[in-house]
Design a protein around this nucleic acid. Structure first.
Lengths: 150, 150
DNA sequence: CTATGATCGTTGCAATTGATACTAATCTAG
DNA sequence: CTAGATTAGTATCAATTGCAACGATCATAG
């Protein structure tokens, strides 16, 4: 007979670990900067290179356009992000960090890296790298699986 | 200057991979058995050993009591799970799989393992073991972190 | 005993998320 | 050109999840 031990089921373990870690991050970001995870993902990507459309942000952050829209509205309301018309396409806007947003990011980035360091304190560099690589493979595998199921 | 590359941020990668995998599992379980993830987690644990209180199920599945309660109600409604009074404590009930629930589980388990196998097809046994172990460590680290933040 | 506090499970409410529909603008066939 | 199909972004509605409050039972201190 086939037994399935929940504890040994990798998708379960993955979900639990991810939720715990996301909880830590979400709490920290909310408390420190009043940002939700979708919002700070946008800040993060915009800091790498501004002048992006929301559609491009969605691709970069793996969030759907609805979530990007909501996060963008929240950030613009707080003057962390500025919208400019897109000369190439009137339907879309180009988003960039404002001066204020840039300042916020400069505070956010070190804090994020600090939390990451603390969470992964027990991991060697090699392990971190390996984990990262496994997660990427897994992501592709899941996408492939979904594609197969037409 | 400290830069934070979102792509290289482990909590982000973890969240993306986990959500993708959960999506695959959730879709499969909904389509095949009409079960949501919280429900099938209960089925899974009850199959290992019945006669548990909801509180114990919550510990075993890492779900809070509200989610356990809702999942349990759904399963009892479908006659997959039976409740019996707990002689030791009148506030709680003991849950077990019904005959029908056991039959469902017998179908579920192989299918779950098959999906897991497919998702992790590119992983060696050693890699799977290592991933599992890293996820457990991460879970503890996150819990420790949360505890520290009083 | 009995009164206070804790625990089990459920319910109700608010916040987050996802799917769909919709407006405005762009692209593509013919 | 222009009609039809596609895309960017927003808004609306339903589903999921988490938190706080609650009734009922249990444990403990006096």
């Amino acid at each position: 007979m086939t037994t399935l031990q929940l504890d040994a089921f990798l998708p379960y373990r993955l979900s639990i670990a991810s939720n715990r870690v996301s909880g830590v991050i979400a709490t920290a970001y909310q408390a420190l900067f009043g940002l939700k995870i979708p919002e700070w993902r946008l800040v993060c990507v915009l800091a790498e290179g501004g002048g992006m459309s929301q559609q491009a942000l969605g691709v970069a952050t793996r969030m759907d356009k609805v979530m990007v829209s909501r996060a963008a509205i929240a950030l613009v309301d707080r003057d962390l992000v500025v919208r400019e018309p897109n000369p190439a396409d009137q339907r879309s806007h180009l988003l960039s960090l404002s001066e204020l947003g840039q300042q916020l990011y400069d505070q956010i980035a070190p804090k994020a890296l600090e939390i990451e360091r603390e969470l992964f304190a027990g991991f060697s560099d090699a392990e971190r790298k390996e984990l990262m690589e496994m997660l990427l493979r897994l992501e592709s595998a899941a996408e492939r699986y979904e594609a197969e199921q037409t």
